[in-house]
Structure formats: C-alpha cells, structure tokens
Design a protein around this nucleic acid. Sequence first.
DNA 1: TAGTTTTGCACAATCGATTGTGCAATTTAA
DNA 2: TTAAATTGCACAATCGATTGTGCAAAACTA
Lengths: 333, 333
Amino acid sequence: MTIKELAQELDMSTTTVSRVLTGQEKKYRISEKTAQRVREMASQLDFAPNLIARNLRLQRTNTIGLIIPDISNPFFANLARTVEEELRKRNKMVLLCDTKDDLTTEKESVELLLARKVDGLLVAPIGEKWEHLRKNVNVPLVLIDRYFENHNFPYVTTDNYYGAYEATSHLILKGHQNIACIQGLVHTSPNQSRIRGFQKALEDYGIDSTAASILGDDYSVENGYVSTKTLLQEEEIPTAIFALNNQIALGAMKAITEAGLQIPEDISLLSFDEQYYFELLSPPLSSVKQPMQAIGKTAVETLFELLDDKKATFHKLKPVLIERASVKNISKL
Amino acid sequence: MTIKELAQELDMSTTTVSRVLTGQEKKYRISEKTAQRVREMASQLDFAPNLIARNLRLQRTNTIGLIIPDISNPFFANLARTVEEELRKRNKMVLLCDTKDDLTTEKESVELLLARKVDGLLVAPIGEKWEHLRKNVNVPLVLIDRYFENHNFPYVTTDNYYGAYEATSHLILKGHQNIACIQGLVHTSPNQSRIRGFQKALEDYGIDSTAASILGDDYSVENGYVSTKTLLQEEEIPTAIFALNNQIALGAMKAITEAGLQIPEDISLLSFDEQYYFELLSPPLSSVKQPMQAIGKTAVETLFELLDDKKATFHKLKPVLIERASVKNISKL
DNA sequence: TAGTTTTGCACAATCGATTGTGCAATTTAA
DNA sequence: TTAAATTGCACAATCGATTGTGCAAAACTA
C-alpha cells in the first residue's frame, strides 16, 4: 500500500494525502472535510508511509547509530537500554553495532552507519584511533564512556579520575599500602583516568606510586583471573586489589577463591563499576558505582543539542563508592 | 558525494558507474579499463553509495529488527550480541527495540520496524498476544526464547520443559519434597513449559504437584525478592526454591540472606538461566544453563532460511544442569 | 457586475540509487 | 567490401515519498 494507491482510492492527488498525513493540512489549506476523508481511509486501510522513501526525500532517517564494544558487558547493556528508551521518546531508533573491542570492526561500523545516513552517532570507541570518527563523519557524534584527551569530541563519561581517587583513598584509609591495580584496555580514557586517580591518591598519602603493581590489559573476566593469578605468585602479595571494571573484579575473585584465599581476610578487593548482584557475592563486593542511567540519558541529550545546532558539551559524571564487605580494615590504629 | 557527481568526475554515465560498483561489469560488458577507472576514482574520493536510495530502489534494506523485552537482562544481552555478530557476517544490521515487557511498546515496535522495511524480524515477544505479529507482517519472522503454542510461528528456544524437569528431578533426588517455584511472566511460553516440567517431575516422583506453591509474576529481581519473602513467612517453609530465571534467583538469594538464613543449609536454591558469575556467588549457585549462543545463531540461520524461501523450522535446544553448592542433599538414605 | 482575494487542490520535480533496453562503434564473418 | 555479430556504454523509467508553485473555482469587495 503506497500513498499513490491510497490517493487513487480517495480519488485525489498524492500531494493532498501526503499533506494531511504529515499534519500540514492547515499550512496548505486542505479543507477539514478532505482531511477527514483522508485520515479515515488511511486508518481503514492500515496505511503506513514507506519510511525509506520519506527518508530519501527528507535526507533524515530518525535513526541513531550506537557503537559499543561489548553488549554482553552489563555496563554497556544498561547503557544501551537507557539510550534506546530515550531515543524512543524522541521518535528515533537505534542501529546497534557491537565492535568486540576491535578497531577494524569499529571503523567498518562507522562507515556502514554513515552510508545508512544515520542522523547521529553515539560511540564508545576502542580508543586507539580517532581519525575514522572525524573523516567523512558529517553527523553529530557523542562519545560515551570513553573519550579522547586531545580531541574535542563531545563526550559523556564517568569522572573516572575522581572515582579511582576515592576508591584508592578508601583502601589507604583502611590501612592498605601495598595495593595492586588490574587494568582494562590500556589506551582507553577511562582506564588512563582511573590509573591516574589511583596513582595520585597513593602519592597524596605518601606512598610510592611507582612501586605499585599495575597489570592487565583488557576488560575481560579472563584478564582479571590471569592477572590475579600472577599477583598471587609474587613474593609479596598485595593486601588489596583494585579491579578497574566489573568483569576484571569477577575474574580476580575467582582466582583468589581458587587459590584458597579469603576475601577480605587474606586479601581485599575493590571493583570499579557496580553491578546489582555484587551485594550477593561472597563476600559482598565493594565497588565504585557509575551513574549509568545518567550517562545514557545525558549522552542522548547532548546528541540532541548537537542536532539542534547547539554547541558541543562535555560531561564527567561523578561516581559513588559503595562500601560492602570485600575490603578489610588493616590499619593499626 | 553522489554517484552522479562521481560519474561527472569520470565523464561517464551513472549507469556505468553503478554497474561497476555493484560488481556487474561483466554482466553488462563494461570494459576492464573503464571498470578500473571507476574503482580508482571511487576509492580516491571515498565514495560510498547512499544506502537509503539503494534500499528504496531494491526494496530491501539489509536490516533486521530485533525486538526483545529487556536488554539489561544478561540473557537477552548475550542473545543480542550473538545475533549482531551473525548478522554482521551476512552484511545485515540490527535495529534494536527494547519493549520492557510492555505489549503496547511491542506492537509499536513492530509497526515502526515494518515501516522502515526491515527484511526480517527476530522477536522475543511478551507472549500475551500474537495478532500484531501476523497482521501486515509481510517479512519473515522468527521467535526467540518465547513462542506461541497454538500458532505456527517459527521459533528457536530452550527446551524449557526438559530443563525444568531435570532441575526438579535433581532437587527431588536430593531429597526435597517441599519445593516452591517462583515463576516469571505467567503467560510466556518458557514460563509455562518450565512450570509443566516442574509439575511433571513432581508427579513422576509421586509428589502431589497441586500442593507445591508456585508464585511470582514476572522475571525481575524484585519479584524473586518479594516472592521469597512471602515464602519465608509461611508456616511450613519449603526446603528448596526453584527460581525460573537468573534475576528471580538473585532476588530470592537476597531475601534469603536478609532473613538470616543460609543457602543451602536452611534452604536450597536452584536457578533456571545460568550466568557466568553464579560460581562466585555465596554459595555458588546451581543452575540450568541455556545454550544462549546456539539460540542466537540458530535464530539467525532460521531467519535466513525463510529469507531464502525455505520452509519454516522449529527448534528446542537442550539446556544443561550445572551443579554447584546451592542445593543440599537432605535425603535420608 | 467586474475585479480582487481566498480557498482548495494538483502538477511535476526531487531525493540517489538501479536496470531494461537501445544504439553507435568496433570487430568478425562471408 | 558488405553484412552480421559483438562490444561498450548511455537514456530514461523506477522505487515512494515530499513540496514549491500554479491554477481554477469560490467567496468577497467595490
């Protein structure tokens, strides 16, 4: 059923039908009687305009591309949900791309989405390169979670520096001096900020930050597991581990448990990136909670500001430390 | 940059350019020399055809609509990931709709996706109604996870009956007679099949299935929590709880812990729907593991069979029981 | 009544690709 | 050398909407 057929059925021009159905009958002086007839027939015949044709004509698709590294990571799944919800409110849809933290896939995704003429892009980039996010990208783009230090892409992210600083301070105040940090993808901005926050806290409390072991290389459970195994084989085992995301924390937990050690009696564990089941783990896991909903919502809002030709904005949202039972107080006081 | 401009640059017709770029130069006898020139210029100018225009002309969008109830549920997040990956291999993209288990949103999503002329639909429906999945739906559709007993939509799902039967048998063999079951959305097929499997197992072992308490009404953590609270207030507390999905299980766990009870000493807990962190919970949670990857992959394969005009197929994939430490053996033997 | 304004709607171009068909130019066959 | 076959490419229609503009008919004004 096309608008043409509908018009024939009504014995009028497609022009008139189109104008009524797009709510422009006033503007083009279509009589109320005619408008009525059109609307009735349209709903009677279940007419829905072909959006492909409309998109071509209007040079606008009401579609946003969402590029994330891993939808099976609950952090991004939650983000995707909020984004979808916010966009739905604004009559836009989401084209989803999961890059698996692979740069080639990310580049390819950008190209595919642009060829499909999305109205805008929301990207949680791998982080190594940014050129492909600029070149030929003629639509608004907002970075989520990760951004680039030296390039002014608008972004929405957690204040990772702050979060890591708070988390590390917390550990230190509980008496920990030998703290290991297991990181995620090294070149991503959240990782770098968290590392800086970690180191700064150590320094501020007079601990030699260069001596602290920082290991690991991606955001996987596997990495948390392997890195922790390594740590546990060192001569001097750290008294606390700071895991830079939820999956690393789980891997760490598994390794510690397998080694027959107890958290927090033998070793403390603190995670960046809260999950709702953390309170049910053994022991309940302390963590830094990112404002996930706010990130998604703000990202969409920021994108819409750009779509409305407003100025780019930049957002670092504060995370919150949630104390549970995985950090032991070993201070001598 | 349009194909027309590219053609002007090359001083030839758009026809020729189009034919070369779509790999039809042989078919239309374009000389290799010309083809070369076209390809070079195209890559030099970073030309990418406008897919909206192509889609309109070809009546095909290489886009699949994925409708799921809750992307923040890791079950569906994992599913989404597999689906995206499989579709990417086949040069298709995913338009994502999260219905929040709301029927109106589901109906709306179907309409929006159809208006966008998706080539096919993958749907995990709410389950109450199915008419909107048939009416005006002129593209292949495959149901995932949930299906309709009395309507022959092709589907891919876990063998929920089998899984629940096995799980319940497991509990019974461990000596449990008073087993409570906390269900999800009552009218969804997985829920119904699981309930049937649960009841059949009870009967087969000579336990009065009508006496077993079945409570709860959706797949949320909240429901697991509230329902368990209710259970724990009964005169005779069940010796085991069978939670029909991962979120319900977490809620149950929380309620049990809060009540000061121990799993499995005071009460056993078994979950349908495995998650990778279950082994790290306190205690490690036994569960029925659904073949999530296989479901996603099979769903995409099934959809492509339909796209190739092959016959609809129906799949029930076997789940596996994973024994951990949340079920106590209380048999008197 | 004639001229002007307003009302109500349709014609045809346009968005950017793809493709059936036709027509020169070149090559081959006779 | 001429006719037939082949090669190489372009014209113009098409997909299904939206929209600037134009033109009758109706309503109003003088």
